[in-house]
Design a protein around this nucleic acid. Sequence first.
DNA 1: TGTAGGTTCTG
DNA 2: AGAACCTAC
Length: 468
Amino acid sequence: MPRPSPGRTVGGVSAAAARPGVLWFRRDLRLHDHPALVAAAAGGPVLPLFVLDPLLWGPSGDVRRAWLVRSLEHLDASLGGRLVVRHGDPVEVVPRVAAELEAAAVHVTADAGVYGRHRDAAVEAALAAAPGAVPFVRSSTPYAVAPGTLKNGSGSPFQVFSPFQRAWLREGWPAPAPRPRTRWVESVASEGLPPAPDLGGVELPEPGERAALRRWEAFREELLPAYAGARDRPDKPGTSALSVHLKYGEVHPRTLLAGLADVPGEGAERFRSELCWRDFYADVLWNRPDSAWHPLKPEAEVPSDTGHLADERYAAWAEGRTGFPIVDAGMRQLLREGWVHNRVRMVVASFLVKDLHLPWQRGARHFLHHLRDGDPASNNQGWQWVAGTGTDAAPYFRVFNPVTQGKEHDPQGDYVRRYVPELRGVAGKAVHEPWLLPGGVPEGYPERIVDHAAERQEALARYARLRG
DNA sequence: TGTAGGTTCTG
DNA sequence: AGAACCTAC
């Protein structure tokens, strides 16, 4: 494979090496923010190509795939119906598509992939071996800083968020890039998009770049000033709700960071920090791909329960019938909307791990299946944080009290009543403790499946035993 | 990005 | 009585 010749650098990629190319974007739908793409576009127009990876196209019922298809439909429409879609394994499909284009030197731009980086290497190898293939640009889920690039003073990956954030702020990130020219190649056929999977009643907002940018502008104008305080209120629309757009590359974090650059105040600072968390967890997973499903720190892993009772408790959690209103509201929001407020994600996760003593992997799997923004990096590292096995993890003794959390972050009980109809007749914050109502727990709402105080003690005891 | 249980301060 | 603060887990 020819080495890129030295020259002007665009977004960290040598522009001299760039030529008209094929874009394979697996998740990154936004065409004009990716450094590798910028370099390719500098040498000529770009062919928008999407390969439906069979890994992404597994068994039915995944909300993320429904979002992906709808998002691609929007992209296809914005391209005048000329998005090139191919189905199959990228290792085989990408070289075949490349061979259908005019021959040119092979150029593989290596951007850091996340989670599937071993697979990306296989695609690169296949392309390198393909004779006469066209330039090829690989693109992965967009981050401000490519995962795997920031290192600490000793040249190792960061283990703690704060030093990572300091380096992240110090080093900075490329500015968002202009939209590239599009190359239409009539000889390359599209196999078309599959139908969106049946959502089973889940209601999704509008996908696509236009909707993402509209949401970003509305958030910046109306919610950002008060973001630092409002982001913890699940009863109000205080968060950006941009996670799903970021995940599918409908908006690039660099676009958001550029838009924050001249905004003073705690809100902007906090939102920038949340974007940094996203980069941090991607970096952690890039450096430790095994940490998606295995504890990052096995020595901190506490024994969890198995068997019939454990399975029944898991089912009660997943279906939102634990008898703890804030937990049930969150789990039902997940099933109804494919999204849960971040504060509530922490509460329900703490409940699964520390009140029900179930392995965090079960919760992470359930979340990935139902969350439209479900991402192996943010989701699974977040679960490890709750379980205390992760980088920068919460101390083992941190156990959320579902009643206290409910009263504090949903003070009028509006969030609970929105998702738990059995409790709609209960006014105010009393909704967080239905067992204290004069008439007892309302008809149809379950009794608590565990005693929180007792299970908190049990969790602390297990951790104490672990530490010897 | 915790909680529980305690003490001390305040009205 | 309740806020504010402290500390062990």
